[in-house]
Structures are given as C-alpha cells and as structure tokens.
Amino acid sequence: MQSTKINYVELPARDLELNKAFFRQAFGWDFEDYGPEYSAFKNAGLDGGFFQADFCSRPQTGAALVVLYSDDLESAVSHVEAAGGTIEQVIFEFPGGRRFHFLDPCGNEWAVWGPLV
C-alpha cells in the first residue's frame, strides 16, 4: 500500500503582512513569499502557508482546527496576546493535557495544547 500522510496545510489570511508579523512575534516562525498573495511558513513544525482571502478558517464553519504544541501554555498565551492575537477559549483541561484557543489577526482559529501540570 502506498504511504500517504498529511504534508502541508494552507490557511486564508485577509492581510498577509499582518499575519506574518503576528506569527513571527508570537512563535518565531519564518516566511517565504511566493508572489503577492501567498506566503509559506517555516519553523512551524509542519509545512504550510497563508493565501490571500477575504474569509477565515474557523471550526464552527466546518474548517479543520490546527493545533500547536507548547511545553508552557501560560507563556504561549502571553506571546499570543502580546503579538495581537485574541484568546477565544482560556486554558482548559482535557483527557491527556490542557489547551487554549486563539484567533490570529485575520480571524483564523488555532489551538495550543500542552501537558498537564
């Protein structure tokens, strides 16, 4: 059987420069632009990019939720807020860990999870 796995994820961004600045500041990601309407992110744990669009990605509308990992959720919350993100769900426990949800400056919803403390 052929091996097929998730390799790349693409997300919309109303403002590419704003989203790039947010993810650089909050998480230290790098970017490579491919024209004026697409930017690939690097150093994010999974390859992917942002494409220029007038909509956003939210699980409530059927989109997949991209979940990041952090050893220190409280620090991750602080970085998200300092970079201009909005906390959508404060840290909560679930079987196997804790997580929070946030909106990037373009309105995409993300989550960050980490271990129980």
Results as ranks from 00 to 15, higher is better:
Trp113Asp: 15
Ser39Phe: 13
Leu68Met: 15
Ala64Cys: 05
Asp71Gln: 13
Glu88Leu: 14
Tyr38Asn: 03
Asn108Ile: 07
Tyr38Pro: 02
Leu116Arg: 12
Phe41Asp: 08
Phe51Cys: 04
Leu116Phe: 06
Trp113Gly: 12
Ala13Val: 01
Met1Val: 11
Trp113Phe: 12
Glu88Phe: 13
Arg14Gln: 15
Ala76Gly: 05
Gln89Arg: 08
Ser70Lys: 06
Pro59Gln: 10
Gly107Leu: 05
Phe31Ala: 06
Glu88Gln: 15
Glu93Tyr: 04
Gln52Phe: 00
Gly48Leu: 11
Val66Leu: 15
Arg98Gly: 01
Ala82Arg: 04
Ser3Gly: 12
Gly96Ser: 10
Phe94Thr: 05
Tyr38Lys: 01
Gln25Lys: 15
Lys42Ile: 06
Leu65Lys: 07
Glu10Thr: 12
Gly62Gln: 00
Tyr8Phe: 13
Glu81Ala: 00
Phe22Pro: 06
Phe100Asn: 02
Glu37Phe: 02
Val66Met: 14
Thr86Ala: 05
Trp29Lys: 12
Gln52Thr: 01
Asp33Cys: 02
Trp29Tyr: 11
Asp33Trp: 14
Pro105Asn: 00
Glu81Arg: 06
Gln89Glu: 06
Gly45Ile: 08
Asn7Tyr: 11
Phe31Asp: 06
Asn7Glu: 11
Pro95Asn: 09
Asp15Tyr: 04
Trp29Met: 11
Gly62Trp: 04
Gly45Thr: 04
Pro95Leu: 03
Pro59Tyr: 06
Asp15Ala: 08
Ala64Thr: 12
Trp29Asn: 02
Pro12Ser: 06
His101Trp: 04
Val77Gln: 05
Arg98Thr: 08
Gln25Thr: 10
Glu93Phe: 01
Asp15Cys: 05
Glu17Leu: 12
Pro36Ser: 13
Ala82Pro: 02
Leu18Asn: 05
Gly97Tyr: 08
Glu88Cys: 09
Gly62Ala: 01
Ile87Gly: 08
Pro95Thr: 08
Gly114Trp: 08
Gly85Ala: 11
Gly48Glu: 09
Pro36Met: 07
Gly97Ala: 08
Glu74Ser: 11
Pro12Trp: 04
Ile87Pro: 09
Lys5Met: 04
